[in-house]
Amino acid sequence: MDDSSSVGLTDALAAIGGGIVWVLQNLAQAFYNIGYAVTHPGLWLDWSDKEAVMRFVYYGGSVEFFFAVFAILLVITIIGIIRNPFMWGCVRVLEGFTNTLGRFFAWAGLLMVLQQIIIVIMQRIFTRPDIVIAFGIPVQFDISWYAEMLKFYNALVVSFCVGYTFVQGGHVRVDLLYAPARFGTKKVVDMLGSVFFMMPLAVLVWMYGWYFMWRHLIVPKPSASDTLDRLLMKARAMRWNVETIGFSPNGFTAYFLFKIMLVAFAGLVFLQAVAFLYRSYLEYVEGPESDGKYLDKDSLGEGEEAYEGAH
Results as ranks from 00 to 15, higher is better:
147 A>R: 14
148 E>T: 01
148 E>Y: 02
148 E>Q: 11
149 M>Y: 15
150 L>K: 02
150 L>H: 03
150 L>Y: 00
151 K>M: 08
151 K>F: 12
151 K>R: 12
152 F>H: 12
153 Y>P: 09
153 Y>H: 04
155 A>F: 15
155 A>P: 04
157 V>T: 02
158 V>I: 03
158 V>T: 02
159 S>E: 00
159 S>Y: 01
160 F>P: 12
160 F>G: 12
160 F>T: 13
160 F>M: 09
161 C>V: 05
162 V>I: 07
162 V>L: 04
162 V>A: 03
164 Y>K: 07
164 Y>G: 12
164 Y>P: 00
164 Y>R: 04
165 T>R: 10
167 V>M: 08
168 Q>I: 03
169 G>N: 00
170 G>S: 00
170 G>C: 03
171 H>T: 11
172 V>R: 15
172 V>K: 13
172 V>N: 10
173 R>N: 15
173 R>E: 14
173 R>Q: 15
173 R>Y: 13
175 D>I: 14
177 L>H: 12
178 Y>K: 07
178 Y>P: 06
179 A>Q: 13
179 A>I: 14
180 P>S: 10
180 P>T: 07
181 A>N: 13
181 A>Y: 09
182 R>Q: 06
183 F>I: 07
183 F>G: 07
184 G>M: 09
184 G>Y: 13
185 T>I: 05
185 T>K: 01
186 K>C: 03
187 K>C: 02
188 V>M: 08
188 V>R: 11
188 V>A: 12
189 V>S: 02
189 V>H: 06
190 D>I: 01
191 M>I: 05
191 M>S: 09
192 L>S: 10
192 L>Q: 08
